[in-house]
Nucleic acid binder design. Structure first.
Lengths: 199, 199
DNA sequence: TCCTCATGTGAACGACAGCAACATGCCGCG
DNA sequence: CGCGGCATGTTGCTGTCGTTCACATGAGGA
């Protein structure tokens, strides 16, 4: 990162994305304002259009990719932290851990996550972070361990994702946002129990 | 409804809400612009502030209440349409019908529903439409018919709501928005199966 | 050294939220 | 019947923001 105040910035794109991520964390998608962020970075608004030809929408897509990467990382770490000697038990606990990580991330970063929801990735499919792919892996592991019948494997990811995604949104910015911490944990456990039993 | 073009409008508040509902149906929350809607109704922007002291936010809350009322009505109708002679079977099918109605409404009116999500009601608790209350009624019926163990009744509404809410959002404006109709139906069935088994 | 193109600037336009001071007319009170 | 007050609307302004255009600058290669 160059602190030098030259005519050319050095890494304007990264600086703008970083500023946008900060604004989104604090105030959600509506707080990401191209004009204000360009000024914050020390650059005219028009300069931002060199790096983001479609303007604000491009910036929000890049910001959403940061959120998706953070989410995928959070899930991967929490899953990897689950250890044990019984493979079936590990598979089951890792599946729960992935759901829990999703809810935790959305609860901690509701504004940034909202950007990811509303603005699809600007990266090519191979490079884009893919939280959903991690869920598919967990479900495959459940099938391998005999915890999920193979005939129920199709569309299982949709059902599980829907439950966890909905719960996360209700807790983070929906009707359950005011729930005290103890009841939040109960709600998460109750929902994951339902998913586990019902999948 | 007065068509008369007098100095005083007659029912400006209702006219603005109706215009806002139309805009939200077509383009979501960001399409609701106080200035443009006031012009559409044939009134200056400042006039709208007489009826909505907090400006745009107030208008969006009132618009969200229309969405919540439509949703509650949709659910109530679909539930009431389920008839049969076996009370347990009726309770089970009515529970599914309420979830299906939720998904259908969100899929058909994603823009209007998004307003309801992001902007809480401006009505006193007693008068506000309450889709969630209808779900609680369905769950109570399941307990009465012995389809849901009483010890699982607490927080069951959270789990069921989360699954249906998440599914609706994924289908309406999320990653599953492009799914063809046949697979959409399968996704809904698969998710409701999970909820029914797992609750 | 000079040329070129990426990068950045300043100015301008239009849409919009919100506020303030002024205008209008409906309705009730004397 | 007339008059005055208050709800209702209006014009006009300020500030923010997205977006575009013509122009300026400077870094690096021919």
């Amino acid at each position: 990162m160059r602190t030098r105040a030259s005519y050319h910035h050095g890494d304007l794109r990264a600086a703008l994305v970083a500023a946008a991520v900060g604004a989104a964390r604090a105030g959600g998608p509506d707080a990401v304002k191209l004009t204000a962020l360009a000024a914050e970075v020390g650059v005219s608004a028009a300069a931002a259009y060199r790096r983001f030809p479609d303007g604000l929408e491009d910036l929000l897509r890049a910001t959403g990719d940061v959120a998706r990467a953070e989410l995928a990382d959070r899930i991967a770490r929490k899953v990897a932290a689950v250890r044990g000697s019984d493979p079936a038990d590990v598979a089951r606990r890792r599946f729960r851990a992935s759901g829990l990580a999703y809810v935790e991330y959305v609860s901690e970063q509701p504004g940034l996550f909202a950007v990811a929801q509303r603005h699809p990735s600007c990266l090519p499919p191979g490079e884009a972070p893919d939280p959903h792919g991690l869920l598919e892996q967990r479900l495959d592991a459940l099938v391998v361990e005999g915890l999920l019948p193979a005939e129920r494997r199709p569309l299982a990811s949709v059902a599980a994702w829907a439950a966890v995604h909905g719960l996360a949104l209700l807790l983070a910015e929906g009707a359950l946002a005011q729930l005290p911490a103890a009841q939040r944990r109960q709600a998460v456990d109750r929902t994951l129990d339902m998913v586990e039993r019902g999948l």
